[in-house]
C-alpha cells in the first residue's frame, strides 16, 4: 500500500509541528534563557552551596532508589513470569499502581504512614528528611524495571535455564550466567527510565521533604523555590542542569540499544 505523497508530507509536518510546539520550543527556550547572559552567571547560579547540595542530594537519592528498584524489579519480574501463585493478577496491578497514582497522593500517603502520629514509627526520622525522600522516589519509580524485564523474560523462555541445569549449573549459577545476560537489555532500559524518573520526581518528594534548603532540597525542588522567589535566571540554570542529566540519560539509552547480532 502506498500512501499519497501529499498525505505523507502533511502527516510529517503535523507530527513535527506537534513535537515542536509542545516539546522542542519550550525546552529550547529554557536553554536560551539560561545562557542568554553568557556562561558565567549560569555557573555562579549552579555552584551556590544550596545548588551544589541539591545536586548531590538528587544523585544520592537516585543512587539508593535505582539499585533498590532494580533488584526488586528483577525479582518481581521473575516471580510474575515464572512463578505460579494465587493473586498474580493482583500483584501485577499493585506494581503498576505508582503509574496510575498521582505523586502528590503518594507523598500524602507516606506522610500518613510515617509522619508524626502515623502508623509506623522508626527510630530515625523519615518524614522531612532523606529517608522519606528515598521512600517516595522508590515508590514513584517502582514499575519501570519490572515492566521492561517481564516481556523480555517471557520471550527468552526457560529452556536455556533448563539446558544450563542439565549441564551441571545450580539454579543460582543458571541465573547469573544465563538468565541475567539474557535479560540485560531489559534491565538496562528499566534502569535508565528509573533513573530519569527518580531525578525528575517532584510531587511526592515535595510533600515528604519539608523543603529545607541545604538539607532536604533536590534539584527539582530548588527550581521551584527559585521560581517562587522570582529568581527566574536561577530557576532556568537549575532547570538546564536537570535537562543535561535527562539528555545524558536518553543518550545512554540510545547507546545501550542491543546490537542485532547478539539479540
Amino acid at each position: 500500500m502506498s500512501v499519497d505523497r501529499g498525505v505523507r508530507l502533511s502527516l510529517r509536518t503535523l507530527v513535527l509541528g506537534y513535537l515542536g510546539v509542545l516539546l522542542l520550543v519550550p525546552v529550547g527556550l529554557v536553554l536560551y534563557r539560561t545562557f542568554q547572559h553568557g556562561l558565567l552567571p549560569v555557573w555562579q547560579s549552579i555552584t551556590t552551596p544550596a545548588a551544589v547540595h541539591a545536586f548531590w542530594l538528587t544523585l544520592e537519592i537516585a543512587l539508593i532508589a535505582v539499585p533498590l528498584n532494580t533488584i526488586f524489579g528483577v525479582i518481581a519480574a521473575l516471580a510474575l513470569v515464572r512463578g505460579r501463585f494465587r493473586g498474580k493478577v493482583f500483584v501485577d496491578a499493585v506494581i503498576r499502581l505508582p503509574f496510575a497514582l498521582s505523586p502528590v497522593v503518594i507523598g500524602l500517603a507516606l506522610l500518613l504512614v510515617y509522619g508524626r502520629g502515623g502508623w509506623i514509627s522508626l527510630p530515625f526520622q523519615v518524614i522531612f528528611s532523606v529517608p522519606g525522600m528515598v521512600l517516595a522516589t522508590v515508590f514513584v519509580s517502582l514499575p519501570f524495571v519490572v515492566l521492561e524485564v517481564v516481556p523480555v523474560l517471557r520471550e527468552v523462555g526457560d529452556e536455556q535455564e533448563q539446558a544450563a541445569a542439565t549441564l551441571g549449573a545450580t539454579p543460582w549459577q543458571a541465573f547469573w550466567r544465563i538468565t541475567l545476560p539474557a535479560i540485560r537489555w531489559g534491565i538496562a532500559y528499566g534502569v535508565v527510565l528509573t533513573t530519569a524518573r527518580a531525578i525528575g520526581e517532584f510531587g511526592a518528594v515535595s510533600i515528604v521533604s519539608g523543603r529545607i534548603a541545604g538539607q532536604t532540597q533536590t534539584l527539582t525542588l530548588l527550581v521551584e523555590q527559585r521560581f517562587q522567589n522570582f529568581d527566574l535566571a536561577g530557576a532556568y540554570a537549575a532547570s538546564a542542569l536537570l535537562g543535561v542529566i535527562a539528555i545524558a540519560t536518553l543518550l545512554a539509552m540510545t547507546l545501550l540499544k542491543p546490537r542485532k547480532d547478539q539479540g
Binding site: E159, Q160, Q162, A163, T166
Partner: peptide
C-alpha cells in the same frame, strides 16, 4: 536435581545460549 544426574539433554528448539 537435573544438574547432578550426569545427563546430556538436547532440546527441540536448541536452547542455545544466545549471548
Amino acid at each position: 536435581p537435573a544438574q547432578r544426574r550426569g545427563i546430556g539433554f538436547v532440546f527441540q528448539h536448541y536452547a542455545a545460549f544466545k549471548h
